[in-house]
Design a protein around this nucleic acid. Structure first.
Length: 423
RNA sequence: GUGGUCGUAGCUCAGCUCGGUUAGAGCGCCAGGUUGUGGCCCUGGAGGUCGGGGGUUCAAGUCCCCUCGGUCACCCCA
C-alpha cells in the first residue's frame, strides 16, 4: 500500500454537512455587516513579518506562534497572518481611504501552536473594524453588531465581558501600579507569572494558575486609574450598550492577548463550552496601531469572531443546524443516460435543483439514489417513456400519483408541482 | 513548549487484563430477492498489513520502546 496522507497537524477537512453550515454562517455575517454599512475587504494571507510584530512583541502569537515562510534572498521575512486586524490597519495606512472606514472580512488565520479542541493551527474568523474615529458610538456599534449576530444564529449562552484598558498616561500609571503591586508580592506569584510580569504586567491578570488566583483578584483595577477622558469614553460606551439593551458584565481583569488594545476591550464567552475554548470572539479599540504601521494617527475599533468555536457553541446549544441540502428533482434514466444528461441540464437552467445517478445503474438502484438525495420528485425515463417521448413524474416526498407527461412539458409541470408543494 | 489519555473496517465500537485457529458486530456502501420503480424486510458481497516503525517471543491487535495523529489540562487564544 502506498503511503497515506492526512490533513496536517492542527488542520482539518470540513465536509458536508459541516461545510454547509459554515458557508451559511459566513454569509449571514456578511449580510449583517453589509446591512450596517460595512464593506468587505480581502487582505492577503501573508504579510511582512514586521506587520504582525506590531501586534505586540511580548505576545505569544508573535514570539512563538508565527508561521514563517521560507526566506528568499533579497526579500524581507514573511509570515502567514495570525489575525487580520494588523492587515486591515496596514491596508488603511497604504491606501488612506476616506473615514470612517467600515470594513468586514472572513477567512483563515494561522498560528503555530499545539492543537486542541476548538484550537487549530488554521482557524477561521469573521470580523469587522471601524477606522478613523474614536467616537464611543463606534465601539457600541461594533459590539452590538457582534452581539446581534450571535443572537441571530441562535446562541443564547454568550456573555459579553467588558473592560477599558485606558490609554496614555492613565494606562502608564496603571501599569506602574500593577508592577509595584505584583513586585511587592513576588514570592506569592507563580514562576510563569513572574516571567510575564517582566514582559507585560497587564498579562499577569490573565493567569489561570490557581496559585495566582488570590493575588490577581486583589490587584489594582484599571477602571480606577482611567484618565478623566477615558473614563468618560467608557461611560459613554456603557450607556450606549444599555440603550441598546445589550447586556454585559464588567470584567476589570480582562486583558487580551494582543498588545495593541487601548480603552474599550471586550470578549464574548460561551457558557455552553469548556473554559479552554469558551472565547468565541473578542475585540476592542486599537488607537495607536495604524500609526505604528506607518499610517496617520487614526483610531480604530473592531472585533474578530472564531468560526470554529461559534459552530462548537452552536452544537452545544443545539442551534444553527446544517441547511437543507436536498435537490428538488432526481432524474432516473435507464436507457442510455443521455436523457439524464439533457433533463438535468434543462432543469438546472430553469433554476430547479436537479441531480442524477451515474454508471448506468439499475432502475432500483437509481430510485434508491433518488430517495437518498432527498429530492421531492423523481423523473423516470425508461424505454417506454422514451418511445412515447414522455417522462414519468413520480412524487417521492410529495403527495399525489405518478403521472406521465410529454417530454416537452416536463419543466413546466415540475415547476407547477414544486410550487404547489412549496406553498 | 509541559503533563495526562486514546488510536481495531467509511462511521460507532467489541476483542487487549491472563500473547495462540481464516480479527468481529451494528450502521453505511454494492448486488440480488422484485427481468421498469425508492423508503420496510430477507440474503449475499466488497471493505481492515488492528495509526506507523522497531523489539521481546516458537507465536503480537494483545507485552516493551520510539514515532505520528486525536483529545484533555496547563500555557495561550478565536
Amino acid at each position: 500500500m502506498a503511503d497515506t496522507f492526512q490533513a496536517p497537524r492542527g488542520t482539518r477537512d470540513i465536509l458536508a454537512p459541516e461545510s454547509e453550515r459554515w458557508h451559511v454562517l459566513v454569509a449571514r455575517f456578511a449580510q449583517a455587516a453589509r446591512q450596517a454599512g460595512y464593506r468587505p475587504v480581502i487582505p492577503p494571507m501573508f504579510e511582512e513579518l514586521a506587520v504582525f510584530q506590531r501586534v505586540g512583541e511580548s505576545t505569544e502569537v508573535v514570539r512563538k506562534e508565527m508561521f514563517l515562510l521560507a526566506e528568499r534572498e533579497g526579500e524581507t521575512r514573511q509570515a502567514l497572518r495570525p489575525e487580520q486586524t494588523a492587515s486591515v490597519c496596514r491596508m488603511f495606512a497604504q491606501h488612506r481611504p476616506p473615514t470612517p472606514w467600515k470594513v468586514f472580512y472572513s477567512g483563515s488565520n494561522f498560528r503555530y501552536e499545539r492543537p486542541q479542541k476548538g484550537r487549530y493551527r488554521q482557524f477561521d474568523q469573521v470580523g469587522a473594524e471601524v477606522l478613523g474615529t474614536d467616537d464611543p458610538d463606534a465601539d457600541v456599534e461594533i459590539i452590538a453588531l457582534a452581539w446581534r449576530f450571535y443572537q441571530q444564529i441562535g446562541l443564547r449562552k454568550v456573555t459579553l465581558l467588558l473592560n477599558s484598558l485606558g490609554d496614555g498616561e492613565g494606562r502608564a500609571n496603571y501599569v506602574a501600579a500593577l508592577r509595584a503591586y505584583f513586585g511587592a508580592h513576588l514570592d506569592a506569584l507563580s514562576a510563569q507569572s513572574r516571567e510575564t510580569l517582566a514582559i507585560n504586567p497587564l498579562r499577569v491578570l490573565d493567569s489561570k494558575r490557581p496559585e495566582d488566583g488570590e493575588i490577581v483578584a486583589a490587584a489594582p483595577r484599571m477602571v480606577d486609574h482611567l484618565s478623566a477622558q477615558d473614563g468618560a469614553h467608557f461611560e459613554r460606551v456603557r450607556a450606549g450598550l444599555d440603550a441598546l439593551r445589550v447586556p454585559y458584565e464588567l470584567a476589570p481583569r480582562l486583558v487580551r492577548g494582543l498588545d495593541y488594545y487601548t480603552r474599550t476591550t471586550f470578549e464574548f464567552a460561551s457558557s455552553a463550552l469548556d473554559a479552554a475554548q469558551n472565547a468565541v470572539g473578542g475585540g476592542g479599540r486599537y488607537d495607536g496601531l495604524v500609526a505604528d504601521l506607518g499610517g496617520p494617527a487614526v483610531a480604530g475599533v473592531g472585533f474578530a469572531l472564531g468560526v470554529d468555536r461559534i459552530l462548537l457553541a452552536c452544537d452545544a446549544e443545539e442551534t444553527f443546524g446544517p441547511p437543507d441540502s436536498a435537490v428538488d428533482v432526481f432524474v432516473v434514466a435507464t436507457v442510455d443516460g443521455t436523457d439524464a444528461l439533457e433533463l438535468t441540464d434543462e432543469l438546472r437552467s430553469a433554476g430547479i435543483g436537479a441531480d442524477r445517478a451515474f454508471d448506468a445503474r439499475s432502475m432500483k438502484s437509481q430510485m434508491k439514489a433518488a430517495d437518498r438525495s432527498g429530492a421531492r420528485l423523481a423523473l423516470i425515463v425508461g424505454s417506454q417513456e422514451q418511445e412515447s417521448a414522455s417522462v414519468a413524474l413520480r412524487p417521492l416526498r410529495l403527495g399525489g400519483e405518478q403521472q406521465l407527461v410529454p417530454r416537452a412539458e416536463v419543466v413546466a409541470r415540475v415547476r407547477a408541482l414544486l410550487d404547489a408543494a412549496g406553498a
